[in-house]
């Protein structure tokens, strides 16, 4: 366990070096928030609620969603891909570590740093600049856990995509499909309420919304009670499934590597 913590510490320090990147991400996020503000203001027009959501709820949701997107960025897909390309993966096979756990630990530092440097300022921005109120309620207690699980889920997606680098020349296509699916279908850009009902019912059970909709709704829709718990359960369920699935994928890929050579 100690060695993984060391990896986390190392990646946190690396993250601090990357402060210019954080700054750029923050600037991009602020611009996006401005665009989102005007967009949703236009969408709402004179209406007070659409699909049961007020402007404040929707805007808060979207703002936190885009911040979360940056916070959850793991780069594991591309890092793993380049390590596969350069044959560095063979080094890991020799070390007494669990590869999946190692990969997870290596992006955790970044995650923690992002939460500290982005989430807090964004919430401040929302409350004081955009004058949005954030309701405090019981379901918020689930939030830290839900965030962590969302992170692990995102890691699974990225890890899975990175592993495809064992089989293909470039992971750009797969990575882009993953990014798009996650962005659009997870409710990251729009609350799921806005989707047509039939589609919404399907999305409810997919892992994508478990990343964004589940934790975000804890903040923006406090009154949903048991629905939160169900969603939380679905999130945990998918997390377990995908962790296991990517483990199997890794095992298969490495077997091929060991037999066929790097």
């Amino acid at each position: 366990m100690r060695s993984y913590l060391a990896v986390v510490r190392g990646s946190t320090m690396m993250g601090m070096v990357y402060r210019f990147g954080f700054l750029a991400a923050t600037v991009g996020n602020v611009v996006y928030l401005g665009v989102a503000y005007y967009l949703w203001k236009s969408v709402y027009g004179d209406a007070t609620t659409i699909r049961g959501l007020t402007f404040d709820q929707t805007f808060l949701y979207v703002a936190l969603g885009s911040t979360l997107f940056i916070v959850l960025k793991t780069y594991v897909d591309w890092n793993l891909y380049s390590e596969i390309r350069e044959g560095i993966v063979a080094i890991y096979l020799v070390r007494p570590i669990d590869f999946q756990l190692y990969m997870l630990a290596s992006c955790t530092g970044f995650f923690l740093l992002s939460v500290a440097t982005l989430v807090v300022p964004t919430i401040l921005l929302m409350v004081f600049v955009f004058q949005v109120s954030i309701p405090l309620s019981a379901p918020l207690a689930l939030l830290p856990f839900s965030l962590v699980f969302a992170f692990v889920l995102t890691f699974c997606f990225d890890y899975g995509v990175g592993l495809s680098g064992f089989y293909t020349e470039s992971i750009w296509g797969i990575s882009t499909v993953k990014d798009t699916l996650v962005l659009v279908l997870s409710g990251a850009l729009i609350p799921l309420q806005f989707f047509p009902d039939t589609i919404r019912d399907i999305l409810r059970w997919l892992p994508f919304q478990a990343v964004y909709y589940t934790p975000l709704s804890l903040v923006t829709l406090p009154d949903e009670g048991w629905q939160h718990v169900t969603r939380f359960g679905v999130q945990v369920g998918w997390m377990v499934v995908l962790l296991a699935a990517t483990r199997v994928l890794y095992g298969r890929a490495v077997k091929v590597l060991r037999i066929a050579g790097g």
């Binding site: 293909t168 750009w172 296509g173 990575s175 882009t176 798009t180 699916l181």
Partner: peptide, 11 residues
């Protein structure tokens, strides 16, 4: 690679 990338581009 071309096929997969094109699909990704589409998305």
């Amino acid at each position: 690679d071309f096929m997969i990338s094109s699909v990704g581009m589409l998305f």
